[in-house]
Design a binder for these strands. Structure first.
Lengths: 325, 325
DNA sequence: TTGTAAGCGTTATCAG
DNA sequence: CTGATAACGCTTACAA
């Protein structure tokens, strides 16, 4: 059996209180007592029970992170950044990969809301989850609209969409296709599409978009992207909704004998560090992952301290000049 | 204040015991009581306190995952796979990205060992952490040697190293350089290097390796990889320790005007799904990520049930035939 | 400087 | 079928 406070107390011939005081370095204690207690803890290899402490303190020092998938580099880097910073603040993180499955998200939520976490950072993309309302748990959303009470951190999607589209047009593309997430969601990322459509229209070009569900397999995705080239053999520009898709499309373009950038221009989205290093050629819109993480934590901390926050924080994007556009 | 069991009990005019019974669907209860209680819970928007349950049950239903970094696709996919499967078993996961920093790992460990988690899956690469001994917490290691008591899941590193090296040789490379992790660690991954060296020697070739610390920046990494081409302008083959590095090296090769595969053959390692889809051209040794995750959980479950396990489980690797070698 | 006792929010035993 | 009550392991008034 794991030793508990009481065992230490008995071995050291003091009370539980005293041991607790030593443990938490609180109150006045004689050096002698302190030594005795440490000795006993050592002997028993004592480790305080975190759960008991959590119960008393009503604080778990755990933050929940709910994201679609950690295997997409954008989320991977974001989660890593968040974890790193939370760790240095003394928090641990529980991660839920919702895979954008509403059931799973709802489930996670219910569990996490039950005093399991001190706060929540949510970056999944589902609608109609009302649970987020009924708690006064500090929550921050990343790139996701939830409700009035929950602040959203996002990068400037409209500007990103505009920059991408203008870049493609300026480099001579006329038939530009945009891949997006599912049409049905109301997320800040939709502003990319708005920007794309407005920019296209402004230049007298016809916007065309293909929406791709998250959480489908690579095989299915490849199927959809193939279809683009079948439906539009004359496509000469693609604005992909993320870098992984951009690269997938590049692979498929090859099969259709399209050379990049001669026959087809491509712009991606996200610009995670790992992508920019592995494939610097890909022209892409860079979301400031580190700044997003910083801002999310800054706002979460405000909420944890019950302070006021804005309801939206928009961070600037930049463009990475590769050779695909 | 959050409502508690007692509040529900009062509102429903029953005892805490009864509410608890309803909550856990245990024992005999009249339908009337059940309805009353559910009503009260509804009205108060009651949610049971997980921490209190954890304390009583001495079980948190949390598994700790300690990995170097979730932003490398190999670990990203592995962690995702583990999370997905643990979730379906009713576990949540606390993730620690150790960045291979021994301090951080030790710290995480200490915290997690304190009754915070029911089990641990460790895939970081540090030495000399003795803490793992003194607990009877179920632990499983992935690709990491810890101590006799802790079962290790790994893919067949020797075979992987041999296949990679032989492939390079067979395709005509003579001056083949191998990049590895730090020399100082005793990990199963070292068997790749052994295999590389033995295979090279067997073919009368001179093994040369460059060791690259984890947790250095991309800039530093690039520096080291640059050095390879400066030190060995006649290099015609590279066996990289992972796919990310393989791609980094490909970028650098370009700068040195080496065409792939004409002037330089490259074989990577890991073969995560995302990599194989984004860069199908990269010839690489594929670790069976899903099987590793499955086996790790199978073994962890055995440990959780206090059953015997083997001390080592080795899973087969395969080769992905790209065009870089 | 140290100890006693109550309480954090559950669950299970045992009695009715 | 239902209710007191103790217990899970720790922290903190309050007392001494």
């Amino acid at each position: 059996m794991k030793p508990k406070l009481d065992d230490v107390a008995k071995l050291a011939n003091v009370s539980k209180t005293t041991v607790s005081r030593v443990l938490n370095k609180r109150g006045y204690l004689s050096q002698e007592t302190i030594d005795k207690v440490y000795d006993a803890m050592e002997k028993l290899n004592y480790q305080p029970n975190t759960v008991a402490r959590q119960l008393y303190n009503k604080k778990t020092n755990i933050i929940g992170l709910l994201f679609p998938t950690v295997s997409n580099p954008f989320f991977g880097e974001l989660v890593e950044e968040l974890e790193k910073k939370l760790y240095s603040q003394g928090y641990k993180v529980i991660i839920g990969n919702s895979m954008n499955d509403p059931e799973k998200e709802k489930n996670y939520l219910n569990q996490l809301l039950s005093n399991q976490v001190d706060g929540l950072i949510v970056g999944t993309h589902n609608q109609n989850i009302q649970q987020y309302q009924n708690e006064n748990l500090p929550i921050v959303a990343i790139d996701r609209i939830m409700n009035q009470d929950i602040p959203v951190i996002e990068s400037d999607n409209y500007s990103g969409g505009k920059q991408a589209t203008e870049r493609l047009i300026q480099k001579g593309a006329k038939k530009i296709i945009h891949t997006t997430g599912p049409d049905t969601l109301d997320t800040p990322a939709n502003r990319r599409r708005e920007a794309y459509e407005e920019t296209m229209t402004y230049h007298g070009l016809q916007p065309i978009h293909y929406s791709v569900d998250f959480n489908i397999s690579y095989t299915e995705k490849t199927g959809i992207f193939n279809q683009i080239f079948i439906d539009h053999p004359d496509v000469d520009g693609v604005f992909a909704s993320n870098d992984v898709d951009a690269l997938l499309i590049m692979q498929i373009a090859k099969k259709f004998n399209k050379n990049i950038p001669e026959d087809l221009l491509i712009v991606g989205y996200d610009g995670s560090k790992i992508m920019r290093n592995m494939f610097p050629n890909l022209t892409t819109i860079v979301q400031p992952i580190e700044e997003i993480a910083n801002k999310a934590l800054e706002v979460l901390n405000l909420r944890l301290e019950k302070q006021e926050t804005l309801s939206e924080y928009i961070l600037p994007v930049s463009i990475w000049n590769g050779s695909t556009c």
